[in-house]
Design a protein around this nucleic acid. Structure first.
Lengths: 155, 155
DNA sequence: TAAGTGAGTTGCGCAAGTGAACTCACTTTG
DNA sequence: CAAAGTGAGTTCACTTGCGCAACTCACTTA
C-alpha cells in the first residue's frame, strides 16, 4: 500500500522514522552491528523474506547507511558494511535496548547484554543532555523551531 | 499483509521495534509529547487516516504507553495521555532526533530544537554509558546473553 | 428539526509482506 | 562435460495494511 513520505517533514523524528520506521530495518541494523555482512547470513538469522531483505538492503545502501562492497571476484560476491552514518545509528538502537530492557523484559532480566570489549564490563545506555550530562525529563522540555525550519510552515 | 511477530524474540531491539517499528507510531508519540491528547488533534496535525490512528491509539493503550481517560461526561469524551512507560520512550525519540539532526538535517541546521523550560537552554541528546558517562563506541561493544535469555535458544 | 461536533467505522483500490519456488552466474565434483 | 552446489537475488500467489473519502453514532446547539 501507499505510504506517506515522512522524509520531507521538518522534523528529525519523521525523517528518522521514514528510515527506521518499519518492522525489519532495526533488526537488519542489529545484525550489521553483530558483524553480519552477507546476504544469506542476514536472511538466515532474521527469517525474513528474501525480497524484503533485498529491498531493505538496497534502501539502506541508497541512504548511505550501509555500503555494498565486493569481497570476491570469482565469482563476484558482495557484502554489506556499516558506514559512519550507519554506525551512528547505534545510539538509536541503544536507546531502544535500554527502553526494552526497562519496560518489556521479564522478571529474569534483559535478554541481551552489551559488554565493553576492553574492560569486560556491562554497558547500560542512557540518554542525557550533552552539556549537563543529566537525563532528560520530557516534562521539562519544550520544542521550538530550529535554524533548519522552513519559514512558510507551522510547527 | 501479514507481519512477523517480533515481540516474542529475546531481544529488546526486536521487542521495541515490534511497537515502534512503523511509520506513524513515533510521530503519534511525538504529538503526545507535544501535549496533544484528543483524537481529532492527532488526526489534524498528522494527516493520518482515521482508521490507522484509531488502530495505533488502541495498540498504544493496550501496551500501556498511553492511557485513555474520560475528560467529559456530556457528551462522553476521551483523551489519550502518556503513562510513565510512555514517557520513558522519550529517550528513543531523543536519540532519533539527535541522529536525524546530525545526519539528515540540511546545511541550515536542525528543523526543531529541544529547550529546557527552566533554563531556556537548548538541549542536545546524547547516548552514553550510565556508569562512565562516555559515548558508546559500537566497535568496542560485544553482545552476550543476559539473564532473561531463554536457555533453549541461540543468540 | 437541522446543523454541528468529536470519535470513530466502513469500503474500495492499491500496494507491501510472507513464504516458497525459481532464476542467474558461477564453482565444484565425479 | 553434465550434474550438483552455492550465494544472491527475483518471481509469484495469497494475505493483509494504508490512503482516502464517505459514513455512522451519540450527543449538543440554535
Amino acid at each position: 500500500m501507499k505510504r506517506t513520505d515522512l522524509g520531507k517533514l521538518p522534523c528529525s523524528i519523521a525523517r528518522t522514522s521514514n528510515l527506521l520506521g518499519d518492522w525489519w530495518t532495526p533488526l537488519i541494523l542489529r545484525e550489521a552491528f553483530y558483524g553480519v555482512r552477507k546476504f544469506d547470513e542476514f536472511a538466515g538469522r532474521l527469517k525474513i523474506g528474501r525480497n524484503v531483505l533485498t529491498q531493505r538492503l538496497n534502501r539502506l545502501t541508497d541512504e548511505n547507511i550501509l555500503v555494498r562492497k565486493r569481497y570476491q571476484d570469482k565469482p563476484l560476491r558482495y557484502e554489506y558494511r556499516l558506514t559512519d552514518k550507519g554506525r551512528a545509528l547505534f545510539d538509536v538502537l541503544a536507546a531502544m535496548i535500554r527502553w526494552g530492557d526497562d519496560w518489556l523484559a521479564e522478571a529474569a532480566g534483559p535478554p541481551i547484554e552489551l559488554v565493553d570489549i576492553n574492560t569486560g564490563k556491562v554497558i547500560r545506555p542512557i540518554v542525557v543532555d550533552a552539556k549537563t550530562l543529566k537525563p532528560i525529563e520530557p516534562r521539562n522540555i519544550d520544542v521550538r523551531k530550529g535554524p533548519g525550519f522552513p519559514n512558510n510552515m507551522k510547527l
